[in-house]
Simulated assay, not measured.
Amino acid sequence: MIRFDCHAHVYKTVTAVPGARYVPEQPAHLREWLGHQAAHGLAGGVIVQVSFLGTDNSQLCRALAALDRERFAGVAVVPLDVDAAALDGLVAAGVRGVRWNMVRGGVVPDLRAPVTRAFVDRLRTRGMHLEVHLEGPRLAPLLPALTDLGLPLVVDHFGLPSEADPACDPLVRAVQALDDPGALYMKFSAHYRLPFDVTPHAEKLLERVSPSHIVWGSDWPHTQNEDRTGYADTYARIADWGALDDGIATSILYGIGHGKGR
């Protein structure tokens, strides 16, 4: 049973950082997201820092301040050289993970570099996880090293597979080839951002990834796709992707849920 919406964006203002890939036309208010949750019987969820705000997590933290910590958490975006005090402040605000948004040519950190190793160590000591948003063909060769970092790894949006046939898809094949997928968590979200049906990909991923390591996200407010989908449509697709239960994953990754029902 899916009880939490683990990928949504909330922001009151849309002032973007320089170089932002996309700037929405209107805010995404917290009350609207909570209304969608109530309408679908969900118990809580996760606010993910939106890309156009860069590393300014202030709106994310203000939203979390208004929410129950047992039912809501956040995922922030920070620089690699983020200091301990800044991370501690985010943790105190309810942030449980950090996102690397590397799509569309974004820089992939060198996992062997001292600054990256120090960054990973800071996450590990605080019980945080790493979330990656990267196209499947670029992610696939990195997956073994990312799952060997010693902290939970969350892969966004089905891993953004590139091939309509999952048997030929590099990301799906990389997941299936992992010696130990225990650190890997997948986020089944934003299916509409892909040019093909991802149901076969979900089936193949679940051959290697436990259903208890899958979380669902609405990707609300569906930026750049507002005219193509809506909250009800994204929620309805959960049934197509197997008997999922996010109780374990949400507790480990976000500190929410604790095995509670709706």
Results as ranks from 00 to 15, higher is better:
Ser189Gly: 02
Ala190Pro: 03
Gly159Lys: 02
Ile214Tyr: 06
Asp197Leu: 14
Ala164His: 05
Thr199Met: 11
Lys204Glu: 14
Leu194Cys: 10
Leu149Gln: 10
Pro170Met: 00
Lys187Pro: 00
Asp156Leu: 12
Leu160Val: 12
Ala183Tyr: 04
Leu171Gln: 04
Pro221Phe: 09
Ser218Lys: 10
Ala202Phe: 11
Pro152Ile: 13
Lys187Ala: 06
Asp156Ser: 12
Ala167Pro: 01
Leu142Gln: 08
Leu184Gln: 13
Leu149Asn: 10
Val154Ile: 13
Leu178Arg: 07
Thr199Tyr: 01
Lys187Thr: 05
Leu194Glu: 06
Gln176Phe: 00
Ser212Val: 08
Leu139Ile: 12
Ala174Gly: 03
Pro161His: 12
Met186Gly: 01
Ser162His: 10
Met186Val: 14
Pro161Thr: 12
Arg173Phe: 02
Leu151Cys: 12
Val209Gln: 01
Trp216Ala: 01
Gly217Val: 08
Leu171Tyr: 14
Val209Leu: 04
Val155Trp: 02
Pro181Cys: 11
Leu194Arg: 13
Ala164Ser: 15
Lys187Trp: 10
Val172Gln: 02
His191Thr: 04
Cys168Glu: 14
Val215Gln: 09
Arg193Phe: 07
Pro195Arg: 13
Pro141Lys: 02
Gly159Tyr: 04
Thr223Asn: 12
Ala177Gly: 03
Asp169Ser: 06
Leu143Phe: 02
Leu151Ala: 12
Thr199Pro: 03
Tyr192Asn: 04
Val215Gly: 05
Phe188Asp: 04
Thr147Val: 15
Trp216Leu: 02
Ala145Tyr: 02
Phe188Gly: 01
Ser210Val: 03
Val198Ala: 13
Gly150Tyr: 07
Lys204Phe: 09
Gly159Glu: 06
Leu171Lys: 01
Leu153Glu: 13
Ser189Ile: 09
Phe188Ser: 03
Pro211Thr: 04
Glu163Val: 08
Leu153Ile: 14
Pro152Asp: 13
Thr199Val: 15
Ser162Ala: 15
Leu146Trp: 11
Lys187Val: 07
Phe158Arg: 06
His213Leu: 05
Val172Cys: 04
Ala183Gly: 03
Arg208Cys: 08
Leu146Val: 09
Ala174Ile: 05
Trp220Lys: 01
Asp169Asn: 05
Val154Glu: 09
Gly159Asn: 09
Gly159His: 04
Leu206Gly: 00
Glu207Cys: 11
Ser189Pro: 05
Asp180Leu: 09
Leu139Cys: 12
Leu160Glu: 11
Leu142Val: 04
Ile214Thr: 01
His222Ala: 05
Glu163Asn: 12
